[in-house]
Amino acid sequence: MSEKQEENSVPFYPDHFNQEAKVALGFGILVVLTGVLGLFFPVGLGAPADPMNTPIHVKPEWYFLFLYQLLQFIPKTIGATSPVIAILLLAIWPFLDPKPDSTKKPFWIRIWVSAAIILIIIALTIWGEVS
């Protein structure tokens, strides 16, 4: 308890709550603006689905696009299995790396690793988008 009183803090209510409410309000306004935009420029629809007629460029949504682009270079079996393994690895990661940080070094390693992964994903997504 004494530790808590030493550091600078504000009460959850009303100070912190009000700040969070302002953030929610700001994003709420953004959401409403999106809706207003949608009144004038609707999302729209493509041609009706036709199982007999395959379009030339079939692309998934942007968040699956990097996986799709990855599949162009690696065998299909590996490409389909790797996301499952990646998610499983992600889920058990805390059990593989349980030691609490004692220095700043692991923090910087994690920053660089995630920056590299993000850059690869962004590059693959853009590549998939333009190809």
Binding site: P60, E61, F64, G79, A80
Partner: peptide, 21 residues
């Protein structure tokens, strides 16, 4: 939405899921 993009994106997506050993 069941338009061309939706139908074929799902076709490809489920096909990829189907190629897991």
């Amino acid at each position: 939405p069941w338009d061309q993009t939706a139908y074929w994106a799902t076709t490809v997506g489920t096909e990829i899921a189907g190629s897991i050993p």
